[in-house]
Every structure is written in structure tokens, then in C-alpha cells.
Design a protein around this nucleic acid. Structure first.
Lengths: 135, 135
DNA sequence: TGTTGACTTAGAGCGCACTCACAGTTGGAG
DNA sequence: CTCCAACTGTGAGTGCGCTCTAAGTCAACA
């Protein structure tokens, strides 16, 4: 909750893991962790170093959106597996559709929470500074 | 993320911890945990059992809204301490104001994530079923 | 009055998502 | 060629928010 950059500026060349971390805002540790967890599969150099191209960076960006909206790692893995297996439309899409519904409900709830917090703030503004307080 | 009840129906009599759990949707274990953590302070019977009145139930409801919008336990504790100390307006209100700003930013981000997910879904709909996939 | 189920506290355990530490390998500037 | 910084995998550690366990106390009905 709360970053600072807004949009990913994706370069056309291949990036090392730390460069990809800079670009995506996901730490190098976490990028490797995602790969270990099966969310991601990064091409390697001849000696085994990861190289992130535009496609991988976009994948990282999408994964981080799923994470930021509360999708658990294991569900993202299921999605990623489906996409890699070429059955994204059959098995991946339903996960996205379900997640979208969840997210929409979640947004509505958070809106309601925001309004309740606003009410509380207003209550503080309205009551006299020396009045005894509740909850 | 994702409950089922919408609004709290608060009774006027005093409730035991498990009855309060029923009403608030927060487990009895968690209610006790909140109290141990200092978020809550429930009146007791002569023999030490908790009794939740309307004020306590409303407090639980508000706490669960703060939790559901990502406020950490320790910050809620700071808020609760301020309110109990009678300095809610001076020390509690700023926490709520900061949290509201955070929440508003968070909502905007989640909206953006939703739109990105929608785009991805649309991409699945638009591309032919047998087309090779990406990311 | 006896028994059963709900209550009490304190502490341990769990699941998740990182995050770090370690030991060893590699790439590139000087 | 040397050397240092950055890379590698694996496993352990961390922080958070619950969630459960254990041992004991209490309420209330037959």
C-alpha cells in the first residue's frame, strides 16, 4: 500500500536482476523468490545469469498488480502455469475473472470503510475540543 | 478481503465474548488477542468475564474497518491509547487523517490495477482461441 | 450438587510473503 | 591477470496477524 512511481518505463534491451529490480520496483531478492515459486521464468545467459527482456518485465508488472490486489502467490502460480502451458484462455482466464469480482467487492468495501473513517473524522471536527470522548 | 454481512446490528444488552464474535464477525480468539494487544478494553463481570456493550461493539467494528484497510495493529494501538487518554482529537485524529490519505491513494492504485486486469481479460477475449500466448 | 460447556490467561504454533546469509561463480574495469 | 562487485542456489530468519493449546475457573441446568 503506497509506492511512488506510477508507470513502468520498459527498456528494449536485456536487464540483469538488479536492473530489473530498479525498473519494476520489486527487489532482486523478491524477483528470485518469485522465480523459485514458479511465478516467473527468466531466460538465462550461457553461464546462468537472469536476463529480463520486455516480455519478462511486463510479466513482473502484471504479477505485482495481482499481488497488490491480494492474490496469493499460489494462485498466481496456478495462473502462470496455465499461461505457460498454453491454456491461459481455458484455465488462466477464469482465475482472472474470479479475481476481478473479488477485487470489485473489495473496492466497494474499502469505499464503505473510507466513508466510516470520514464520519469519525467529522465527528472529531464537530465535537467541542474539551468534550469527553467515545471509542 | 471478502465477508458476507454488511451492517452490524448492535443489541442493547451485554454480550459474552462468543456472542460478540457472532455479532461482529471477529472470532472470539481474535477479540481476546485485540484486547491483549491493547486495541480494546472490555468491561468485566465480578469474576472476570468480558461483557461487550454497544460502545465496545462499535469500537470493535471501527477497529475491524481500520484493519481491513491495512492499518497495522501497532498503529491502531497508538490510536486507541490516544482515545483512551482523552487526547483523541490531538493525537488520534492525525493518525486517522494520515490513514485516510493512504487509503485514498490505495483505492486509486487498486482501481488502476483493476483496469489493467480488465485489459488482460479483454485481450484474452479478443485473441483467437488457438493463438500462441504471451506473459 | 454434579456435570458440561463456555470462560480465563499465557504461551506456543502457523501461514504467508518476503528478506537475508552463505558459500561459491562470474563479468568487466584497470 | 587481478580483483571487486554482482551474480547464483538453498536454506534459514523475520514480522505480522492471527489461531490454537493447555490448564484452570466459572455459570447454569438437571
Amino acid at each position: 500500500m503506497g509506492e511512488e512511481e506510477e508507470v513502468l518505463n520498459i527498456p528494449s534491451d536485456l536487464l540483469s536482476v538488479s536492473a530489473a529490480a530498479q525498473v519494476t520496483g520489486i527487489s532482486a531478492h523478491t524477483l528470485r523468490y518469485y522465480e523459485r515459486a514458479g511465478l516467473l521464468q527468466t531466460p538465462r545467459t550461457a553461464t546462468g545469469q537472469r536476463r529480463y527482456g520486455p516480455a519478462e518485465l511486463l510479466a513482473v508488472e502484471f504479477i505485482s498488480r495481482l499481488r497488490a490486489t491480494g492474490m496469493p502467490i499460489r494462485v498466481i502460480k496456478t495462473y502462470a502455469d496455465a499461461v505457460r502451458a498454453g491454456s491461459g484462455r481455458e484455465h488462466g482466464l477464469p482465475l482472472l475473472l474470479a479475481h476481478r469480482e473479488q477485487l470489485i467487492r473489495d473496492l466497494a468495501q474499502r469505499q464503505a470503510h473510507l466513508e466510516a473513517i470520514n464520519s469519525k473524522i467529522t465527528a472529531y471536527r464537530d465535537c467541542a475540543p474539551t468534550t469527553k470522548e467515545r471509542s
